[in-house]
Amino acid sequence: MIVPFSHVLILAGLLFLMGMVCMVVRRSLIMILLGVEIMLNAAAIILVGSSLLWQEMEGQSIVLFIFAIAGAEVSVGLALIVWAYRQTGSVDPRDFNLLK
């Protein structure tokens, strides 16, 4: 007996909201990418919890794929940030409104 499932849902929801706040509020490309990581982690927590609730292993296998997707996203995202930094010398999203 650990806890009711709703507590896991609330924990993951708050974590997801924190990631969203980090992504929207911070004005730095690196913090935006960190916000995406926090949100993916919240999704992973909820999947492991539901995998325990139904005593099935599907949730855990999806978490494995979330790890792979997080790795791919971070490698491409950080390469893009480095590329953008070389172009303009800044990681502020306001400096990249090239289409304006």
Binding site: M1, I2, P4, F5, S6, L9, I10, S51, L52, L53
Partner: peptide, 20 residues
């Protein structure tokens, strides 16, 4: 969100320990 989660009857099930 908290209201939806708490009012859902299936989320009141207590998790049992298990090991994969």
């Amino acid at each position: 969100g908290i209201g939806v989660v708490i009012s859902d009857p299936s989320s009141r099930i207590t998790l049992k320990t298990a090991l994969a």
